[in-house]
């Protein structure tokens, strides 16, 4: 964790103002922030260590994509596929993997490819539904 991120803990007993400022009603709440301290993603509830690891890497990859640090986004997604197969994050990771590849290589065929992979591996996932318009792209 410390290799890739700066971890920060906000204690409900000691830092109630932070809970109010960030509109946190229930714990645990995890947020992913950029290096300027701006919140990009948040999630609630208890996750198993693999689910937590995959979720954090996926949200980090989406921040890197936003920051146009696409090589870093690619590496975060690769780490999910290597270390966290079988987690709930995989369909969304496939979706963003295609998006990052399209950005890196400026080729829309990666969007069509991500749709085909999702249809094959996760036909019932919401991410397969979200990728449906990419069927209009020629392979």
């Amino acid at each position: 964790m410390n290799n890739q991120f700066i971890p920060l803990r906000i204690n409900r007993e000691k830092q109630r103002a932070m809970f109010k400022q960030y509109l946190v009603a229930w714990t645990p709440t995890i947020m992913l922030l950029d290096m300027d301290g701006k919140v990009h993603h948040r999630f609630n509830g208890f996750l198993t260590p693999p689910e937590m690891g995959a979720r954090i890497l996926l949200d980090a990859a989406k921040i890197e994509l936003f920051l146009q640090r696409n090589d870093r986004a690619r590496r975060q997604l690769d780490n999910i596929f290597t270390d966290y197969q079988g987690t709930f994050a995989i369909p969304e990771a496939i979706f963003y993997s295609g998006v990052v590849d399209m950005e890196l290589q400026e080729d829309p065929k990666f969007l069509r490819q991500l749709l085909e992979r999702l249809r094959k591996e996760f036909p019932l996932s919401e991410w397969t539904m979200k990728a449906k318009p990419y069927e209009l792209i020629d392979l």
């Binding site: 964790m1 410390n2 890739q4 991120f5 700066i6 971890p7 920060l8 803990r9 906000i10 204690n11 409900r12 007993e13 932070m18 809970f19 960030y22 946190v24 714990t27 645990p28 709440t29 995890i30 947020m31 992913l32 922030l33 950029d34 290096m35 300027d36 301290g37 919140v39 954090i56 980090a60 921040i63 890197e64």
Partner: peptide, 30 residues
Amino acid sequence: MIIWQESFDTTVQKAKADGKLIVMDFFNPH
């Protein structure tokens, strides 16, 4: 072992210096 920061401002300073993202965990000690 995870080394947690407790100060938001210090965390942002470190994140800027290292080019790293921040994981912020709101927790209840009870």
